[in-house]
Design a protein around this nucleic acid. Sequence first.
DNA 1: TTCGAGCTTAAAATTACATCA
DNA 2: TATGATGTAATTTTAAGCTCG
Length: 341
Amino acid sequence: MELALSLGEPPARPAEKIVGERGRPSTKLKLGFCMELGGGRERRGEEDEEEIGGDRNWEMEEREKRRRSVDSPVQLNLLQLVPLPRQEMGFPWSTENRNLEATTRVLDVNQVPSAEEAAAMSSSPNSTVSSFHVDFAGGVGMSAAAAADLERASSRASDDEDNGGSRKKLRLSKEQSAFLEESFKEHSTLNPKQKLALAKQLNLRPRQVEVWFQNRRARTKLKQTEVDCEYLKRCCETLREDNRRLQKELSELRALKTSQPFYMQLPATTLSMCPSCERVSSNSSSAAAAAAAAANQTSTAAPTAGSIPPTGSDKPPVPFVTSLFPKPRFYPFARQPSAAS
DNA sequence: TTCGAGCTTAAAATTACATCA
DNA sequence: TATGATGTAATTTTAAGCTCG
């Protein structure tokens, strides 16, 4: 018995591509998501241009906002995410929840927030929220934790501004992480619009959202690889056990053969056992038929077992190893059946 | 139609920072 | 308090796909 495992083969590029990927203007679904950063410039009709090179636009926008905040420090409305219970959270691209006002509220930073608002904000994004140097003057009725959180966020942001050269690492808040996690469940890749929407909603830079998704995909893949590895180890152990058993049987049969030469009169092919149904056939043609039937049974009775379906009647039966996988999954190391072969 | 430049994004590898035991 | 381990945000490199001239 021979088991050939090919690990480490470069995975084929995932076949499924998210709509609108690679900067193609292919966002077929019009998302109907339009949020405005209050105090920002007039942005009517700019959504399409923003689709490509959103980061650059965002940065320009940020610069513009900072400039405006200096030029005219009044009337700056900051769109601030107020966390809601999970079931009320919705994604900008979600068909179930298009009503983003339900998940966000616009806070006017020129007003001292209420205790509830301040508390809500304390658990909200901590990264770029205070690019605007929001100072709620200690927050009326704000909890200590909330105040500390806010303080951290604002000091972090001021650090960002102070030493722009060094690589400062922000820690996403639990809410941000949870929201990103949820959106990752919906889409493991983002098109530019989704990225922008998420970034706006979480008050992060689009680049940060993008990086988070990249890292998240990497983590997912790593985890999957570990799981696959464990599974293959178990498969290997099972096969080793089978091999031992078969070797033992073989030696027993050989011993039987030498002690009872009567059976030698039969052709060698008559004692073939179908490895699937473990039935012994009496002649070579019926044995082949049984094996074929078994193979058919394997491929039809358990088509979802991860086995590669036979591509043609003249092809050899399904390798048993491939059918060991419990469910159809993408195995990065599994050679995909090519159309040519 | 083909080709190459220029662009974008994703994956992979790596670095660097924050946190914790 | 120092330190190593760990998690993860951020960066860099590479490859692939697309558009356009």
